[in-house]
Simulated assay, not measured.
Amino acid sequence: MSQEYYDITIIGGGPVGMFAATYARMRLAKVQIIESLGQLGGQVATLFPAKKIYDIPAYPTISGTDLIANLQKQVNDFAPDIHLNETVLEIKQTSAGFELVTSKKKRYSKSIIIATGIGAFEPRRLKIDNAQTFEGQQLRYFVDDLNIFKDKVVAIAGGGDSAIDWALEIEPLAKELYLIHRRDKFRALEGNLAKLQATATHFQTPYNITALNKSQDKLNLTLTKARSEENKELSVDYLLVNYGFSSSNKQIENWGLTTANRAIAVNSSQETNIPGIYAIGDGAYQKGKVALIATGFGEAPNAVNNALLHVYPEKRQPAHSTQLIKQFKKDQKR
């Protein structure tokens, strides 16, 4: 083969995709994750990081942030190749497997596991002409490391669960925290809103951000009161915008996969109508399925084992996880 082929390519870096990559590496497969966002964690990391999750075995309750942190540590220990800020646009069959045309380059794989959930995410961006100038610096749509907000003046824009969740995470760290929302009422869960209101957070409502300017090392925000011409200025170290995310499965519709109930139809082996392509998590459908994160975690090893059986028909089914780890460690020493 003139091209480098991975054994398994996992499209989607949410919780289920992360665990699939970990398990595939336990089985010594050559694995890559392709994720459209700038971080791993999917919906859990971007939409409800502080929300408590109750369907993870052995955890009576765990926050989205802690769940992703644990999965990230697990992924790091097994070290699959990870490609962030990259979207798969086309999948073409080749004599050796598949060619994946992405927003950055062409990649090759002997099998594919789709773990995209409800689709590729894009943040709803701040609609100000020069906003792009500050993106990835003092203007953020994602949180990669909470510690950057420590002892800083931080503004969060938004009124939904994601904005309030991040505010609850950042408030204990920040020197000052401002919450900017265009209405006096919030869409977020009432209990979490009440928790935030009990802190020292400064609520700036009903205001819209209408201008951004840099002054020395600060980001200056112009806030305009809703339905008026009243303005005020606010100087911050960071602005985190949480206006929600748009998701799309349009690319998947062009990949020739059979769908059902707005998801990819799979059989008991997690295989789609195209041999060698599998789907797991919220983006996969089979009759009687319960849509839980725990369900997706169970589907991941099933898909991995069947993908490897497709690629290597002579390969025996795996032993218990302790044996897999012993073999993985032995392989790493070679």
Score class of each variant (00 low, 15 high):
Lys92Phe: 09
Leu212Trp: 12
Arg125Met: 13
Gln43Gly: 03
Ile280Arg: 01
Ala307Leu: 15
Gln3Gly: 08
Ile53Trp: 04
Val101Cys: 04
Tyr5Arg: 09
Ala120Glu: 10
Leu324Thr: 02
Met26Ala: 05
Asp217Met: 02
Leu189Ala: 09
Thr9Asp: 10
Gly160Thr: 07
Tyr23Ile: 12
Val241Pro: 02
Val44Ala: 09
Tyr312Trp: 01
Asp81Ile: 09
Val241Ser: 08
Lys73Asn: 14
Phe149Asp: 00
Ile33Gly: 05
Leu173Glu: 09
Leu193Val: 11
Gly117His: 01
Glu176Phe: 04
Phe78Ala: 01
Ala307Gly: 11
Pro275Val: 10
Ser95Leu: 05
Ile156Val: 14
Phe48Trp: 07
Lys104Trp: 07
Phe203Ile: 13
Ser162Lys: 01
Lys287Thr: 14
Asp184His: 05
Thr272Arg: 13
Gln197Cys: 06
Asn261Val: 07
Ile10Glu: 03
Lys30Asp: 13
Ile82His: 01
Ile148Arg: 11
Glu99His: 11
Asn242Thr: 12
Lys287Leu: 14
Asp81Asn: 12
Phe78Met: 04
Ala291His: 09
Lys105Asn: 13
Lys330Asp: 07
Leu223Gln: 02
Gln39Asp: 06
Met18Thr: 05
Lys152Cys: 12
Arg227Tyr: 11
Val266His: 05
Ser248Glu: 11
Glu86Lys: 04
Arg140Cys: 10
Ser109Asp: 04
Val241Met: 08
Phe186Val: 07
Lys110Pro: 04
Ala198Gln: 13
Ile62Ala: 03
Ala294Ile: 03
Ala155Gln: 02
Ala194Glu: 13
Thr210Gly: 13
Gly42Ala: 12
Asp66Ile: 06
Tyr178Arg: 00
Asp81Arg: 09
Trp255Asp: 01
Gly281Phe: 08
Val16Asp: 03
Ala211Lys: 12
Thr295Asp: 07
Ala120His: 05
Gly160Asn: 06
Lys150Ile: 12
Ser162Ala: 15
Glu314Met: 08
Ala20Trp: 10
Asp81Met: 05
Ala29Gly: 14
Ala200His: 09
Tyr312Asn: 10
Tyr59Asp: 11
Asn147Pro: 01
Arg25Lys: 15
Glu86Ser: 01
Ala167Trp: 01
Gln251Val: 04
Gln204Leu: 15
Gly191Met: 06
Ala174Pro: 00
Ser228Pro: 02
Glu176Ala: 12
Ala157His: 05
Gly191Lys: 03
Val31Arg: 05
Ile56Ser: 03
Ala194Pro: 00
Ala50Lys: 02
Asn147Gly: 06
Lys333Asp: 13
Thr322Tyr: 06
Asn254Met: 11
Lys232Arg: 14
Gln323Tyr: 05
Lys330Thr: 09
Asn76Gly: 08
Ile10Trp: 03
Ser63Val: 01
Lys51Met: 08
Phe48Lys: 01
Gly159Ile: 06
Asn130Ser: 06
Ile164Ser: 00
Leu179Phe: 10
Ser111Val: 11
Phe186Asn: 06
Lys232Ile: 15
Ile113Asp: 02
Lys127Gln: 15
Ser63Arg: 06
Gly283Cys: 15
Tyr59Glu: 14
Glu299Lys: 00
Asp282Glu: 13
His181Phe: 10
Gln197Glu: 13
Pro57Arg: 10
Ile148Val: 15
Gly288His: 08
Leu239Gln: 00
Thr116Gln: 06
Thr94Asp: 03
Leu221His: 08
Glu271Ala: 10
Gly13Glu: 10
